[in-house]
Design a protein around this nucleic acid. Sequence first.
DNA 1: TTGAAAGCGCTAACAA
DNA 2: TTGTTAGCGCTTTCAA
Lengths: 350, 350
Amino acid sequence: MSDVTIKDVATAAGVSPSTVSNLLNGRAHRMLPETRQRIERTIKDLGYRPNRAARQLRTGRSQVIGLVVPSVGNPYWGAFARHLESAALAEGYHVLLCNSERDPDRERQYVSELLSDGVFGIVLCSSLPSLEHVLPLVDQGLRLVAFDRKAQAGDPASLVSITVDNAIGGELAGDHLVGLGHRRIAFVSGALRSINRQERLRGFLAALSRAGIGEQDVLRWTGKGDDQLGDVEAAELGTRAAAALLGRRNRPTAIFAINDMTALGVCRAVRDAGLEVGRDVSVIGFDDIVLADLSSPPLTTIRQPLPDLAAAAFTELRLRLDDATVQPGRSLLFRPDLVVRASTAPVPGS
Amino acid sequence: MSDVTIKDVATAAGVSPSTVSNLLNGRAHRMLPETRQRIERTIKDLGYRPNRAARQLRTGRSQVIGLVVPSVGNPYWGAFARHLESAALAEGYHVLLCNSERDPDRERQYVSELLSDGVFGIVLCSSLPSLEHVLPLVDQGLRLVAFDRKAQAGDPASLVSITVDNAIGGELAGDHLVGLGHRRIAFVSGALRSINRQERLRGFLAALSRAGIGEQDVLRWTGKGDDQLGDVEAAELGTRAAAALLGRRNRPTAIFAINDMTALGVCRAVRDAGLEVGRDVSVIGFDDIVLADLSSPPLTTIRQPLPDLAAAAFTELRLRLDDATVQPGRSLLFRPDLVVRASTAPVPGS
DNA sequence: TTGAAAGCGCTAACAA
DNA sequence: TTGTTAGCGCTTTCAA
C-alpha cells in the first residue's frame, strides 16, 4: 500500500500535517502561495494519496454510493448502471454494485451492509411496491433514492422517487397502435405487482378508451403464476403469452408488451406461428434497450431517457448526502418517447 | 449513522472492548460461553454494526474488490459483472464498479483511486494488450487479475490471467462451418488489437486449414478505421462489413463474427441484402449473450462459461488478497462450447 | 499564516 | 479468560 502519509508530506515540506490537510480540503487560501506550492510539489514527488478509510473514519462521510438493482445481467439495468456510474464519477464518487436478484431479504441485507461500510447514499431499484423492509434504516442515516418506482402514499416523507412517466408511456403506445388502425389489441405482462406495470397498463387502456375501445375489449395477459420472471424469463413469458393469444379465433393484430425483453419473446412467438412481425402482427415494447434496434425486425418501443434518469438519480442523492438536514421527499417523472421502428405497421387490409 | 460503537456494546455487556472484538474476529473460543452469549445478545439488542472504515484503517484490509470493465451497458460485461458480484458476495465481499469506456487513462485513474480507497484487489477487464499503464501500481500493493486476456510475455510475474480459450473457440467455429460443407467463408471483426481477437482468428484459420482452405481463401474483414467500437458500434460494424462482403461476386456462404453483437449486425445486413440467415448465409458468433437465443433466427455461437470464469476470477483474487506473499502468476484458460442454433445450416445446394 | 493536540472506532500485542 | 493500551491516518478546533 501507498505507505506515504500526510505526516511524511508535512515533514518533507517542512510544515505541519494540519497545513497539508488544509490544502487538501480546499483551504489553500489560508497559507502563503509559496507554502502551498512547496506542499503541492512534495505531494507529487512522494506520490502521496490520501487514505480514504482514515478520512472517512474522521468525517463520517464517504465518496461511495450504493446501487441496488435486480440484476446487471439484464441489459436495461446494465445500461442504467453504466449511466449512473458515469454521473457519479464526474463528481468523484464511486459506485458499489449490488444485485438483489429480486430478493427482498437480499435487498435489506445489502442496504444494511452498505450502511456499515459507511455508504449512506443508495439508489434502490426495488421490485417491491412497498419499501418497508428498508425503512427502519433511514433512521440510521440512510439516504434513499428509489428508482423505477413512483412515490406511494405509504412512503417515508423524505423519499425521492425517480421514474419515467409510465402512464404517459402506456398512452403513447396505445395512441400509436390505434393510430395505425388496430382495434383488436392485446397487452402482455408478467404479474402486475409493480406500480410501474400498473401505470403502463392504465395509460394504455386510457388511450384505447379514447378511441372507443373499452377495457373489456382488450385482451390482457398478466402472468399466469410464472411470477419469478428474471430477464431471460421475461422473454419466455412473452413467447408463451403470445402463443396463447395468437391461437385464438379472433387473434389480435397488435400486442403491447410490458418491456422490450418480453416484446422480443412475443416476436418469437409470432414467427413460430408462421406470421410476420409488422406485417401480420404489430408489436410494441417499452424501454428501448440496445437490442431493440438490433432485432429483426427492429422493435418499435417506448424509450426511457436513461442518461437523464441516471443523472437525476445521482444529483438528488448527492443533494441529500451533502446536506445533513432532512430534505422533503419528491417524485421526478421523466417523459418517455415513442420510437417507431419496423415492428409496428398499419393493420393488415386497412 | 449507526452510532453504537464497540465500546457501547462492551459497557452494556459488562466486558472490555477487546473481548467484543475477539468475538467479532473469530476468537470466540477465548472466552466463556456465557460471556459470549451475553455479548451476542447485547450486539443484537443494540443493533450494533462494526464500522468498516475503522476496521480498515486499523488492519489495512477491506472487504471490497474493484471491477473495471469497458462498459456494463454491454450485455456481455453486464452478465460478467453479475456473476462476479455473486461470487464475491458469497464470501462477504462487495464490488466497486468501474466503466473504463475503453479509455486507458481512465483505467489507470480508476486503479489508482481504488488503491487510495484501500481496495487492493482488482479484476481488470482491459481492452489493451499491454498492462504497463497500471504496472507501477503493483508495487503499491495492487493485486491484479486480468480477465478476458491471455498472459503475455511482458506481463509482471505475479499476474493472473483468466479467459476462455479463444483459439479453441475459433477452431470450434471453423470446424462447425466446415462440417456443414461451407468453403467460401468470411471472418468479420473490428481491428484485431486485442489478443483475444487474434487468437479467435488463429484458431479459426487453423480449423479451415485442416479442411484444405488456405488462409488466402478466407475473406477477412478486420476493421476499416472504425476502431472506437463500443457495444452498439460492434453491431454497426458487423452490418457494414457483411454488406460489403455480400456484395462481392463470389459472396461467402458463411460468416464467423468476432462476437455476438457483431454477429447480430451481420444478420441484419444479410436480411437487408434480401437473403435469409441460416438458409442462404450461415452466421456464427461468439460469447452466447442473452440475446443470442432471442434473436431471429436464434444465433449459433461459441459459449463462454461465464459463471465459472467469474468464480475463478474472484477465487484467484482472494487467494492473493489473503496471502501477503507474492504468488506466482498464471493463466487459466476455460474451454468454450459450441452452441448450435438456427443461424447456421448446411451450405445451400449440398 | 501555521501548529499542537485530540479523537473518529477498531484491532492486537501484551499484561494481568 | 479478560482488560489495558497504543495507534492506524486523517480532520478540525483552538491557540500561537
